[in-house]
Protein backbone atom coordinates (compact mmCIF):
# COMPACT_ATOMS: atom_id res chain seq x y z
CA UNK A 1 0.00 0.00 0.00
CA UNK A 2 2.56 2.57 1.11
CA UNK A 3 5.17 3.68 -1.35
CA UNK A 4 8.77 3.03 -0.32
CA UNK A 5 10.33 5.94 1.59
CA UNK A 6 12.77 6.81 -1.17
CA UNK A 7 9.90 7.35 -3.60
CA UNK A 8 7.49 9.06 -1.21
CA UNK A 9 10.05 11.72 -0.29
CA UNK A 10 9.82 12.93 -3.86
CA UNK A 11 6.02 13.22 -3.75
CA UNK A 12 4.81 16.76 -2.98
CA UNK A 13 1.67 15.44 -1.29
CA UNK A 14 3.78 13.71 1.39
CA UNK A 15 5.79 16.85 1.97
CA UNK A 16 2.55 18.75 2.54
CA UNK A 17 1.35 16.12 4.99
CA UNK A 18 4.54 16.45 7.04
CA UNK A 19 4.27 20.24 7.25
CA UNK A 20 4.40 21.12 10.95
CA UNK A 21 4.99 24.82 11.71
CA UNK A 22 6.05 25.87 15.19
CA UNK A 23 2.93 27.44 16.68
CA UNK A 24 0.69 27.55 19.74
CA UNK A 25 -3.04 27.28 20.50
CA UNK A 26 -5.28 30.33 20.02
CA UNK A 27 -6.17 32.55 22.97
CA UNK A 28 -9.59 33.97 23.81
CA UNK A 29 -11.29 36.51 26.02
CA UNK A 30 -13.84 35.06 28.47
CA UNK A 31 -16.97 34.20 26.49
CA UNK A 32 -20.46 32.88 27.35
CA UNK A 33 -19.19 30.00 29.51
CA UNK A 34 -15.74 29.81 31.14
CA UNK A 35 -14.69 26.64 32.91
CA UNK A 36 -11.77 24.99 34.65
CA UNK A 37 -11.19 21.46 35.88
CA UNK A 38 -9.56 21.47 39.29
CA UNK A 39 -8.06 18.78 41.53
CA UNK A 40 -9.35 19.37 45.05
CA UNK A 41 -8.96 17.45 48.33
CA UNK A 42 -12.43 15.97 47.72
CA UNK A 43 -11.89 15.01 44.08
CA UNK A 44 -11.69 16.39 40.59
CA UNK A 45 -14.23 19.18 40.05
CA UNK A 46 -15.41 21.17 37.06
CA UNK A 47 -16.21 24.82 37.86
CA UNK A 48 -18.04 26.99 35.31
CA UNK A 49 -19.47 30.49 35.24
CA UNK A 50 -21.52 32.43 32.70
CA UNK A 51 -20.75 35.76 31.00
CA UNK A 52 -22.19 37.74 33.93
CA UNK A 53 -19.90 35.92 36.35
CA UNK A 54 -22.55 33.76 38.04
CA UNK A 55 -21.55 30.17 38.75
CA UNK A 56 -23.50 27.70 36.61
CA UNK A 57 -21.69 24.45 37.46
CA UNK A 58 -19.64 23.00 40.28
CA UNK A 59 -19.60 19.27 39.62
CA UNK A 60 -17.55 16.21 40.45
CA UNK A 61 -15.95 14.98 37.22
CA UNK A 62 -13.70 12.00 37.99
CA UNK A 63 -12.98 11.32 34.31
CA UNK A 64 -13.21 13.02 30.92
CA UNK A 65 -16.54 11.35 30.15
CA UNK A 66 -18.08 13.05 33.19
CA UNK A 67 -16.37 16.30 32.21
CA UNK A 68 -17.72 16.12 28.65
CA UNK A 69 -21.22 15.41 29.93
CA UNK A 70 -21.23 18.64 31.98
CA UNK A 71 -19.77 20.65 29.08
CA UNK A 72 -22.42 19.28 26.70
CA UNK A 73 -25.16 20.30 29.13
CA UNK A 74 -23.69 23.79 29.43
CA UNK A 75 -23.41 24.03 25.66
CA UNK A 76 -27.11 23.27 25.29
CA UNK A 77 -28.48 25.15 28.29
CA UNK A 78 -26.33 28.31 28.22
CA UNK A 79 -24.34 28.68 24.99
CA UNK A 80 -22.02 26.57 22.84
CA UNK A 81 -19.34 29.24 23.36
CA UNK A 82 -17.77 27.16 26.11
CA UNK A 83 -14.07 27.84 26.74
CA UNK A 84 -11.51 26.47 29.19
CA UNK A 85 -10.38 29.61 30.98
CA UNK A 86 -8.74 28.98 34.37
CA UNK A 87 -7.95 32.65 35.02
CA UNK A 88 -11.64 33.60 34.75
CA UNK A 89 -12.29 31.36 37.77
CA UNK A 90 -9.35 32.34 39.94
CA UNK A 91 -11.49 33.92 42.68
CA UNK A 92 -13.74 30.86 42.96
CA UNK A 93 -10.77 28.47 42.96
CA UNK A 94 -9.21 30.44 45.82
CA UNK A 95 -12.47 30.49 47.78
CA UNK A 96 -12.94 26.78 47.25
CA UNK A 97 -9.39 26.08 48.37
CA UNK A 98 -9.84 28.24 51.47
CA UNK A 99 -13.16 26.59 52.26
CA UNK A 100 -11.79 23.06 51.87
CA UNK A 101 -8.94 23.90 54.25
CA UNK A 102 -11.17 25.43 56.91
CA UNK A 103 -10.21 29.05 56.22
CA UNK A 104 -13.58 30.13 54.79
CA UNK A 105 -17.13 29.41 55.94
CA UNK A 106 -19.22 31.10 53.30
CA UNK A 107 -18.77 31.60 49.59
CA UNK A 108 -19.24 35.07 48.16
CA UNK A 109 -20.17 34.20 44.60
CA UNK A 110 -23.39 34.49 42.64
CA UNK A 111 -25.05 31.32 41.39
CA UNK A 112 -27.38 30.65 38.46
CA UNK A 113 -29.48 27.47 38.49
CA UNK A 114 -29.67 27.26 34.69
CA UNK A 115 -28.77 23.53 34.81
CA UNK A 116 -31.39 22.79 37.49
CA UNK A 117 -34.92 21.42 37.19
CA UNK A 118 -37.91 23.46 38.34
CA UNK A 119 -38.09 21.40 41.51
CA UNK A 120 -34.38 21.91 42.21
CA UNK A 121 -34.95 25.65 41.83
CA UNK A 122 -37.29 25.40 44.82
CA UNK A 123 -35.22 23.00 46.92
CA UNK A 124 -31.65 24.25 46.47
CA UNK A 125 -32.16 27.94 47.39
CA UNK A 126 -34.20 26.85 50.41
CA UNK A 127 -31.36 24.55 51.45
CA UNK A 128 -28.78 27.32 51.12
CA UNK A 129 -30.93 29.72 53.20
CA UNK A 130 -31.87 27.35 55.96
CA UNK A 131 -29.00 24.91 56.58
CA UNK A 132 -25.89 26.78 57.60
CA UNK A 133 -22.21 25.93 57.97
CA UNK A 134 -21.72 23.14 60.47
CA UNK A 135 -25.44 22.24 60.60
CA UNK A 136 -27.12 19.10 59.36
CA UNK A 137 -30.62 18.48 58.12
CA UNK A 138 -32.55 15.51 56.75
CA UNK A 139 -34.35 14.99 53.44
CA UNK A 140 -37.65 14.87 55.37
CA UNK A 141 -36.98 18.15 57.21
CA UNK A 142 -36.11 19.88 53.98
CA UNK A 143 -39.28 18.49 52.36
CA UNK A 144 -41.29 19.96 55.23
CA UNK A 145 -39.57 23.34 54.82
CA UNK A 146 -40.72 23.57 51.21
CA UNK A 147 -44.23 22.51 52.34
CA UNK A 148 -44.05 19.15 50.59
CA UNK A 149 -43.70 16.90 53.68
CA UNK A 150 -44.17 13.69 51.71
CA UNK A 151 -41.54 14.56 49.12
CA UNK A 152 -38.44 13.41 51.05
CA UNK A 153 -37.47 11.01 48.28
CA UNK A 154 -37.86 13.67 45.56
CA UNK A 155 -35.80 16.08 47.68
CA UNK A 156 -33.09 13.40 47.89
CA UNK A 157 -33.06 13.04 44.12
CA UNK A 158 -32.99 16.83 43.65
CA UNK A 159 -29.99 17.16 45.95
CA UNK A 160 -28.28 14.14 44.41
CA UNK A 161 -28.29 15.92 41.02
CA UNK A 162 -27.19 19.29 42.46
CA UNK A 163 -25.42 21.19 39.63
CA UNK A 164 -23.65 23.45 42.17
CA UNK A 165 -22.04 21.01 44.60
CA UNK A 166 -20.36 22.49 47.69
CA UNK A 167 -21.47 26.03 46.70
CA UNK A 168 -25.05 24.96 47.47
CA UNK A 169 -24.47 22.68 50.45
CA UNK A 170 -26.34 19.47 49.66
CA UNK A 171 -23.68 17.61 51.70
CA UNK A 172 -25.35 18.96 54.87
CA UNK A 173 -28.42 16.82 54.28
CA UNK A 174 -28.40 13.23 55.58
CA UNK A 175 -30.90 10.42 56.08
CA UNK A 176 -33.23 10.62 59.08
CA UNK A 177 -31.24 7.71 60.57
CA UNK A 178 -28.18 9.96 60.50
CA UNK A 179 -26.52 7.86 57.78
CA UNK A 180 -24.67 9.94 55.23
CA UNK A 181 -26.34 8.09 52.30
CA UNK A 182 -25.17 9.12 48.85
CA UNK A 183 -23.13 12.02 47.49
CA UNK A 184 -22.18 12.94 43.92
CA UNK A 185 -18.54 13.19 44.98
CA UNK A 186 -18.65 9.91 46.91
CA UNK A 187 -19.25 9.28 50.60
CA UNK A 188 -15.63 10.03 51.51
CA UNK A 189 -16.07 13.55 50.11
CA UNK A 190 -19.30 14.05 52.07
CA UNK A 191 -17.61 12.83 55.24
CA UNK A 192 -14.66 15.18 54.62
CA UNK A 193 -17.03 18.15 54.25
CA UNK A 194 -19.11 17.33 57.33
CA UNK A 195 -15.99 16.74 59.45
CA UNK A 196 -14.50 19.96 58.17
CA UNK A 197 -17.59 21.96 59.08
CA UNK A 198 -18.07 20.32 62.48
CA UNK A 199 -14.48 21.21 63.33
CA UNK A 200 -14.30 17.84 65.12
CA UNK A 201 -11.38 16.46 63.19
CA UNK A 202 -9.01 18.66 61.27
CA UNK A 203 -9.31 17.38 57.71
CA UNK A 204 -6.30 15.52 56.41
CA UNK A 205 -4.43 17.80 54.08
CA UNK A 206 -3.15 15.75 51.20
Amino acid sequence: MNAPASQSSADPTDLFAGFDPATRPPTFEPSDVSYVVEDTPIGRMLLARNASGAMVASSFTPDTAAEDAVLERLSRAVSPRVLRMPSALDDVRHQLDDYLHGRLREFSVRTDLVLATDFQRVVLPRLAQSVHYGERSTYGQLATRIERPSAARAVGAALGANPLCVLLPCHRVVASSGALTGYAGGLAAKEYLLDLESGATPPGVG
Binding site: F19, D20, P21, T23, P25, P26, S31, V33, Y35, D68, L71, E72, L74, S75, P80, R81, V82, L83, R84
Partner: peptide
Amino acid sequence: PPFQHLVDAHWRDVAR
Protein backbone atom coordinates in the same frame (compact mmCIF):
# COMPACT_ATOMS: atom_id res chain seq x y z
CA PRO B 1 -20.41 20.65 20.78
CA PRO B 2 -18.72 22.91 23.36
CA PHE B 3 -16.41 25.26 21.43
CA GLN B 4 -13.40 24.14 23.47
CA HIS B 5 -13.71 20.68 21.88
CA LEU B 6 -13.26 22.27 18.45
CA VAL B 7 -10.21 24.16 19.64
CA ASP B 8 -8.62 21.05 21.16
CA ALA B 9 -9.37 18.88 18.13
CA HIS B 10 -8.48 21.31 15.32
CA TRP B 11 -6.12 24.07 16.43
CA ARG B 12 -3.09 22.34 14.93
CA ASP B 13 -4.84 21.91 11.56
CA VAL B 14 -5.94 25.55 11.53
CA ALA B 15 -2.37 26.66 12.31
CA ARG B 16 -0.93 24.42 9.57
